[in-house]
Design a protein around this nucleic acid. Sequence first.
DNA 1: TTGAAAGGTATTTTT
DNA 2: TACCTTTCAA
Length: 983
Amino acid sequence: METAVLAAEERVLEGLSERQREAVLHGEGPLLVIAGAGTGKTTVLTRRIAHLISSKRARPEEVLALTFTEKAAVEMAERVDQLIPYGYAETWIGTFHAFGDRILREWALEVGLAPEFRVLTRPEQIIFLRERLWRLPLKRFRPLGDPTRHLGALLGLVSRAKDEDIAPSAYKEWASARLATALDPAARDAAERHAELAAFYEAYQQLLAEAGAVDFGDQICRALALLRERPAVLAALRERHRYVLVDEFQDTNRAQLEMIRLLAGPDRPNVTVVGDDDQAIYRWRGAAAGNLLAFRALYKDAREVVLTANHRSTQVILDAAGQLISYNNPYRLEAMAGIDKRLRSLRDAGLPVRHVHFDTISAEADGVAGLVAERLGQGFRPRDVALLVRSNDDADPFLRALNVRGIPHRFTGSRGLYAREEVRVLVCFLRALANPDDSVSLFYLAASEVYRVPETELLRLNRYAVRKSRPLLEVMRGLPANEELAGVGGEARERVDRLLAGLDAAAAEVPHRRTGELLYRFLQASGFLARLSRAADAESEARVKNVAKFFDAVKAYGEVAEHDRVPAFVAHLDLLRDAGDDPAVAEADPDEDAVAVLTVHKAKGLEFPVVFIVSCVEQKFPVKRRSDPLELPADLVEDRLGGAVDAHLHEERRLFYVGMTRAKDELVLTSAADYGTARLRKLSRFVVEALDLPSPAPTPRKSQALEALARHQPAPEPAPGLERPMRDEELLHLSFRQIDDYETCPLKYKYVHRLRVPLLVHHRVVYGSAVHKAVQEMFRARLQGRAFGEDDLAAAFRSAWVSEGFLSREHEEQRLQAGEAALRRFHREEAASPLTPTGVEQEFAFNVERTRVVGRYDLVVERGGRVMILDFKTGDVDDVAAAQKRATESLQLDVYALAHLKTAGRLPDWVELRFLESGLAGGKRPTLDEAARTESRIRDIAALIRRREFSPRPSYMACGQCAFREVCPHTARGPETEERPTA
DNA sequence: TTGAAAGGTATTTTT
DNA sequence: TACCTTTCAA
């Protein structure tokens, strides 16, 4: 290994011209090395470091090597170690971030921080802000119903401001200058918005300082501020580190650029940077060519070395990649700085780059697996082959296809730990322990592989619990003495006993033991760990690793928590999850001989003999562009790229370039037309560009609706015994909620309406139902001719209030006040043109064949023969268009209309949603057409329910919102939600 | 030709 | 839920 690496390094040096070698090894003063893919970027840098030290030009501690990623730092240190094994111990090799951290810790007291200040992770930032929400100067970014909805976006803005090295004071100044000169209302509004954002930024920094904490990325910012304000500190650092070397300079952001400028200084700049703009794949404004140009502008006399001799790939691959990247002109260094960066292969010509197109994604996955198998037959090792994907989710079908063919493979994703079965069991155990009423978790735990309570019996216990409105745990405890449940079998009883014994034993320990200890005992006592470790296959190994990883999280909590006990940990975990925290599953053994499936980002810096870039279609690669939820003002951000027209597309193209240049011998690009979505996909423009194909014909046909439906249907689950289909003549009751839930996901319907797994109350439900009840009371009084004043309404609201599910006492108080204020306003506004209801909470029921649809109208108003049905809603809808959209799409209103048609013989003249907080309304005039469509919709769903068809329908949005996402084994990854949604 | 409505889709990753 | 693209209607 060592000699191989050294030999490779020799090759790199041999590839250099005399002048280049001289510059790299012996050069003094600023040096810019532009090193294309596979030309030995790290080699040049490590050689230079080793040379500086071994030639005694620099003492080891005078050399400072900065990288962008941890991975790069480790690799660099290893290679220097091979060159001068013991000579570099004092050399600082690490990331920019770690370096900023070190400076800050050394001088922490100078900037008013204790040296042991805490660094908050991203999820911790959200938790931190949530707890202090009420002290933040937020108005328009803290909407009524959901106080934390914008925190993620706000933090994103702050972190971008930090990357751009914009201080809160600078932002504030800018905003108030804007405010002073804004003339028209639109400009004024924009300026006010930014003033608020700037105030938030400042307040947040203040809060962090008070708490003795900084957030990720802040170390560099604060270190910079320190260096600017204390010239003595800066001088000391410059004295210490006379040589600064930077790897991967193209991915460096503005604050890091500034750090180099300060450290190297204009007077004595002994700085070397190595980079290649075409491989910049992390989107920070002005990175890529912009940073390299900024460096050139800063050090006009810098020596420049361009490395183009490629040791990795065949010329065919390099040419295709070069052709692709030329589409980024003129925003490339090559074009902007007049450099020739065309890569020359030092190898034979090689196989042509291929593009293979398939009809469907499954054909593509299968085809690729077939091609991989072919290569293995030709004598390639599995580890020689890589499948590169653009998004983690794209890997799924390929993993399955490799699995089917029995080809060893490993996938390196970047999240998903909490979704793993073995981790879920642990979480449910802790939840059940922390909250005995949490029947969802208990249910899952009982059904899990640890206790295996038979599902049919478990359902029975659960139904009984629901009927008696008691927690499942209580029913389990009362099982031996319960005559109604005498029919529950012996096996189930025995397993329930084991479960209860396990829980009781653990519960007794809760006050005395730390979370980790308790969890460990559970694993041992239940035999779960033993069973996992006994199995010798790779899958079990992975599971054990994941369990270990979860233990790390538990341990990490124990290290910072004041009281490391289960209830506190569960609360902490819930917050983390809500904040979008989802660590990666455990890494597979890197030495394992397996086909690598990974994202292109993860592949940066790696190489493989055979590379497949899969799913090369528009919208996937390049991915659709997503704009920032909150934009930094453009004139605060220094543009280092001369206003590139489409920065997003350029970055995607660089990413594709990185993917292509990973290949040593063979590169295959694949695509398909049909990815199971309603629309057919177009071939990626990158394939067209790289291979010089004719522009693809426009999408030829639309896929048949039925075909699309069939694709959505997942493989049928083996149905558990109990669920016999309903006989046709049996009556099925359906409510609007049930229909809606079934449409969202049949499995959710099963959880909510058949299993009736009880849910913990969410604050939005408390709020909504209290408002609703109050309004109902008001109209009922009006119907009866009673007076009902504003105060009565407020009183009704408060008496309907349940104190449950709120984030904090302050949050609850704020919601109470908000609700009351909204109701009072509603009362006043309504008094201007009072509704005269003819029905309040009026129940209805009608049949669609043997299905009885039941429900109630909130409010019916009949006047002059016109019938209007109203439904009241809470939740932030703050413009007319949104309200109207909600109404147009409302299944609930459709059901109302159909109900009125069926029961009164005619359609209502108007159906409407009223949004109480904003006073906005959206409505529509029902049509017979629509009613017929609603009826057939109901008929279809009823038929499926009768067949007991409860296959999950995981989807991006539905799963992110679903209350069962913790326990549902089919969860698709949802968007980061900062709030736990309601059922 | 224009505008509104319906319909489809959802990223990667650093510290 | 928010954005974008396509389709439909005027």
